[in-house]
Design a protein around this nucleic acid. Structure first.
Lengths: 189, 189
DNA sequence: CGAAAATTTGACATGACTCAACTGGAGTGG
DNA sequence: CCACTCCAGTTGAGTCATGTCAAATTTTCG
């Protein structure tokens, strides 16, 4: 598990054992079973979560009462509600485990402490945030450039893990289309 | 101009005069007249630009030959093509001055050097990136939750500067609707 | 096995787009 | 400073992608 984190961090920076241990000591292991919530609207998101096993989604409920999924996250991803965590504001979203999930979590205070002790980690998190931003922008591009069918096909190709492990109505929600329409798209009209 | 930058940075960190000067020495002033390009597709984005005066847009040309505007940026904003700048890849987008514009620019190498000398700046840029990410997510929320008319009305309220300084067909492009449809929306009927 | 959840199907509704024509104002050159 | 051109903006008719709603069917799982 510690090695899993090291492998992940190695993408951005190289840490000595001492530094890794220091970071590790600020992390807490935690478990969530299928359907359990890590965060609900109104609560302030206390942690960034590094998923070591499992699958998590973020979503909100719109005015019509429908779930709108904004993100899926699997093993070796950091996930949080960035808005709520960073600005320490009440969340508008849910964080929920779709499968039984194991995480390493860290709160804002511990994170700041670690940054102070190991500036390389601040660097890693800056780069991670930049990459997330780029990913979001690329994603947004897809929405602009492709119609629903193309978006679905792209997702099947680009993220087979998700389409395999996540029920279809959640994929529809993530693609911002109705489950009925996705069904008809799969049919091939 | 140096003071303008200091005021901006004070939102995130406090710098001594020495530190600010050090940063300032890595920045270069530059000017672009109306309609001039700061970046074209295929080029790699060399700089982050801090706008001291003026207005810049980022956009790309879609397969139909239409411009799709993805961002406006005005005084006291940092703007760049994050994907191209961060990953040093050829840009798919244009950066263009909509008004005569003055900037302070810095390239990746200088930025890294400054981060090494003044870690507080790395911190500031991490936070700025987090905030951009939050802004993009919030923006995306608007697109999900509101129809075209509501998006337009929201934009007029939330960013009057843009709707005042930018021609209507660009606003339409930014809102991801056709100029014809925006026109009919404004009509209200 | 049975109930609840997920998916499919089909009829109908609509927001937003396309295309083409028209209007009006802002430059520009003679 | 008029006449002409050009571009932004408007209007309207026709179309299409996607949504809504309700019912039927299939799958999941206690």
């Amino acid at each position: 598990m510690k090695e899993q984190l090291r492998t992940y961090l190695n993408r951005y920076i190289s840490l000595t054992d001492t530094e890794l241990n220091l970071f590790f000591n600020h992390l807490t292991e935690d478990f969530f079973s299928k359907k359990e919530y890590l965060l609900k609207p109104g609560e302030t998101c206390k942690y960034k979560y590094f998923i070591t096993k499992g699958l998590i989604r973020t979503f909100y409920i719109d005015e019509k009462g429908d779930e709108k999924i904004t993100q899926f996250a699997i093993e070796n991803w950091w996930v949080t509600n960035m808005e709520s965590f960073t600005l320490q504001l009440p969340s508008k979203q849910y964080l929920q485990a779709i499968e039984d999930t194991a995480v390493l979590k860290i709160d804002k205070e511990n994170l700041e402490q670690v940054f102070a002790k190991v500036p390389k980690l601040e660097r890693a998190f800056r780069i991670m945030t930049e990459n997330m931003l780029i990913a979001i922008q690329r994603n947004h591009d897809f929405y602009q450039k492709m119609n629903s069918k193309e978006r679905y096909e792209h997702m099947v190709k680009a993220q087979p893990k998700f389409t395999q492990r996540v029920p279809q109505y959640m994929i529809a929600s993530y693609l911002e289309i109705t489950p009925e329409y996705l069904s008809s798209l799969r049919k091939g009209y």
